[in-house]
């Protein structure tokens, strides 16, 4: 089995571990680090359930090898709202934007990146930015509403 040592920051904590060179980032997060908030959906980069932030930008952890993140920083859903809920999490709860919850971690991380880049997104901009995160409960209306409300609240 071919292995490599990697060191990376996960949710602010430095981690060092030995991983198989062909192991996916999502498997290391879920199986080695027990960060099961990141979900395994399609496994081919179509659904966005496995979204994590790499150096602050949303990427798909099922299309990323664990060895690629050596010396880099990863944020998973566990890394936001640790002490009290993130405003986006609050808005999702308040608007009933969580149904089965499988897409929620990815939705929230992608939406976080959107609000960092664009503090006043229109509905179209929100829909366009979230286009890679699929909700199979099809609760998009509430999700878009939650993101919009969170942005409006932060702009006050």
């Amino acid at each position: 089995m071919k292995k490599a040592e990697i060191e990376f920051i996960v949710n602010g904590k430095k981690r060092r571990l030995s991983v198989k060179t062909n192991e996916l980032l999502i498997n290391v997060l879920r199986n080695d680090l027990n960060l099961t908030g990141t979900k395994y959906g399609c496994g081919i980069g179509e659904c966005g359930a496995c979204t994590v932030l790499l150096e602050g930008k949303p990427i798909l952890s099922c299309l990323t090898l664990a060895v690629e993140v050596n010396n880099k920083s990863i944020t998973t859903i566990e890394g936001i709202g640790e002490e009290k809920l993130d405003p986006l999490q609050e808005a999702f709860l308040k608007n009933g934007a969580v149904q089965c919850g499988f897409c929620t971690p990815g939705m929230i991380l992608t939406a976080k990146s959107l609000l960092k880049e664009n503090s006043h997104p229109t509905e179209d901009e929100i829909r366009d930015y979230l286009r890679g995160n699929l909700c199979r409960c099809t609760g998009y209306t509430q999700i878009v509403k939650a993101v919009k409300e969170c942005a409006d609240k932060q702009n006050k």
Binding site: G45, G48, T51, L54, K57, P58, I59, L60, L63, T64, T110, S113, Y129, R131, G132, N133
Partner: peptide
């Protein structure tokens, strides 16, 4: 092109 998650990489 695809979506923002893919475009970032």
């Amino acid at each position: 092109f695809a979506n923002p998650l893919v475009r970032n990489k």
